[in-house]
């Protein structure tokens, strides 16, 4: 083939691909329009949520306003939602359409078959690294919505700026002995996930030394905040940075450790046997939309699509959107738990 022929061939190929792509896009857009129409016809969507209700309140309002589809939310603790979903699926009693739960519980549920494939969702393409890959975007069944990050909090009446811990390592400083309150490392949540990360990154000896600091453990972060603010303790970890809004005016300051914040995410997926599958699909997709992601950024969460808050005060941005350290995945956590039980039980 002549050079001209090759060039013409390439152009023809490119043109064909473009046309196919455009047609496919037009087709998928048309298909998505069908999903939207079917969702409106279904009339409602039932969400089972293990997340703090306020974090999704505005997102739900935005969805209802955008599509005119009412959202009914049932809340519960992560494990309760999990068992309810499992029972409904096992006995064909499906009521829920959408699942919102923490990363490890949601992945456990996905593996157990509680969540079904959501199919192509337009907004999944918006996910940025690392949220487009597992463990976040898990086998096309669940997607991340609003990653929670954990830092260190100090009581500003007890800890002078010069004495503030700068890194996770600083928690071993003897001056903090008996002055730290920490989320129970044997409980499912930030305390356990973060401690599993420390175990991996800093080693067992570090964890044992941390325990030797005579740390007080708490299962209720609300209570831990109160005890820190009242001056019962100088340091609280791991501190959910988005909680800063709820603690305005109290002598509590969040600090991003030099290693970065530990983090996890709320996940959303379509429940197996959802009675309103199209509305569920629409809801899952909408949680990755610009409006909702901007709202999450405003609330102090990291946006999984890279949206930036327009309302967050400048002084809070380093804390809310500062450096991330590591996330604990299900398989690694399962390996860490027996060791944590040996140390802390």
């Amino acid at each position: 083939m002549s050079k001209l022929g090759k060039i013409l061939g390439m152009w023809a190929g490119a043109l064909a691909l473009t046309l196919i792509g455009t047609a496919a896009h037009a087709q998928s857009a048309a298909e998505w329009d069908q999903v939207v129409a079917a969702a409106k016809k279904e009339g409602k969507v039932v969400v089972y949520s293990g997340a703090a209700p306020n974090s999704f309140k505005r997102a739900v309002e935005l969805f209802e306003k955008a599509y005119g589809i009412p959202v009914e939310i049932l809340i519960g603790r992560g494990a309760e939602i999990r068992e309810r979903v499992r029972t409904e699926r096992s006995f064909n009693r499906n009521i829920g359409d959408v699942l919102i739960n923490g990363l490890s519980t949601a992945i456990g549920q996905t593996m157990a078959g509680d969540v079904q494939d959501h199919g192509p969702l337009p907004n999944v393409a918006k996910l940025i690294s690392p949220f487009m890959d597992p463990p976040f975007n898990h086998t096309d069944k669940i997607v991340p919505t609003n990653p929670t990050s954990w830092a260190i909090a100090v009581n500003t009446n007890l800890v002078k700026p010069a004495d503030e811990p700068k890194s996770w390592q600083d928690l071993l400083d003897p001056k903090w002995k008996g002055k730290i309150i920490y989320d129970n490392p044997l409980s499912n949540g930030g305390g356990q996930a973060s401690m599993a990360i420390f175990l991996e990154k800093f080693g067992r000896e570090w964890v044992e030394k941390f325990k030797a600091q005579q740390v007080t453990f708490s299962d209720q972060y609300t209570i831990a905040h109160q005890r820190l603010a009242r001056g019962e303790f100088a340091i609280y970890a791991p501190f959910i940075v988005s909680e800063t809004f709820n603690l305005k005016g109290l002598p509590i300051k969040g600090i991003v450790p030099t290693e970065g914040k530990t983090y996890s995410s709320q996940m959303v997926g379509m429940l197996t046997g959802a009675p309103h599958p199209n509305a569920a699909k629409l809801f899952v997709n909408y949680m990755l939309g610009d409006e909702v992601q901007t709202n999450f950024a405003d609330l102090g969460y990291t946006s999984v699509t890279g949206k930036v808050s327009t309302t967050l005060p400048e002084e809070l941005k380093p804390l809310m959107h500062g450096k991330l350290f590591d996330i604990m995945t299900e398989d690694r956590l399962q390996k860490a738990i027996p060791i944590l039980e040996q140390i802390f039980k």
Binding site: A79, E83, T105, G108, L186, S187, Q192, E330, L333, I337
Partner: peptide, 12 residues
């Protein structure tokens, strides 16, 4: 409570 709520999979 720990067996149900605080482990990765509830141990019923």
């Amino acid at each position: 409570y720990n067996a149900i709520n605080q482990r990765q999979g509830p141990d019923y």
